[in-house]
Amino acid sequence: MILAVASGKGGTGKTTVATNLAKVCAAAGRPTQYIDCDVEEPNGHIFLKPQIDGREEVTVEVPQVDAAKCIGCGRCGQICQYSAIVCIGEKVLTFEQLCHSCGGCWLVCPAEAIEREPLRIGEIETGQAGPLGFVSGRLEIGHVRTPSLIRSVRRHIQSDGLAIVDVPPGTSCPVVAAIRGVDFVLLVTEPTPFGLNDLKLAVELVREMGLPFAVAINRDGIGNDQTQAYCKAEGIEIVASIPDDRRIAQAYSTGQMIVDALPEYTERFRDLATRLGAL
């Protein structure tokens, strides 16, 4: 089972929920992996403190033109939608930072003059945090190929166990790459006007993608009751609520797991896991 933990807005407690949920599931004996797909700002390692035993470089394919074989037909420049390969007269220029690795240029080249070169976009760390499997991607600074890296991270998911995916915030392409085809999405929100606005966008996205989902409310008690009212009106199930507890914020600030620092919350996460069918 692949369970994605997402949020329309950042900073709602998505990583907190994902890491604690993963930890209680693994502790209960279920083979579980925590998969950090928030590759621009991966933070799961801060809380899970895994033992890292594998590091893998992630590359994408970009074109390299063999000038000796090029016949100057210009077809690679015509097919490229991203200005990543450009034909000026008989010269062909490539701009690898703009490339989406769609393969158009090497497929259309009639002279087999385009080789595929690897371009490094980030790395993936794998390891263990006790019984919990750990996988985390990290995008290289200045690169924009976030979805490609996320797809590579997801290839580490083992099909027979439970995978809890920490999704990047927002509703754009990296989120799509992280939640496409998952079994269930848990949307974490805060009961504030900002939180609700962004929750609505996230709901729109998961509905468009046809994914089953439910909501968890974090920092319950701040803000107002509009989020509950919205969920009720839309027929969305609220499967968990975590109170606004300053001790949680303090534990978070030092990189502690809630279930370690405040064991009274363990039951709440176990209950959430059960309701989601993860236990």
């Binding site: 991203y82 200005s83 990543a84 450009v86 000026i88 220029l93 701009f95 703009l98």
Partner: peptide, 14 residues
């Protein structure tokens, strides 16, 4: 408004 603006503009000039 497109990506790779410098490259596109250079092609226009050429």
């Amino acid at each position: 408004d497109a990506g790779g603006a410098g490259i596109s503009a250079a092609k226009v000039v050429i």
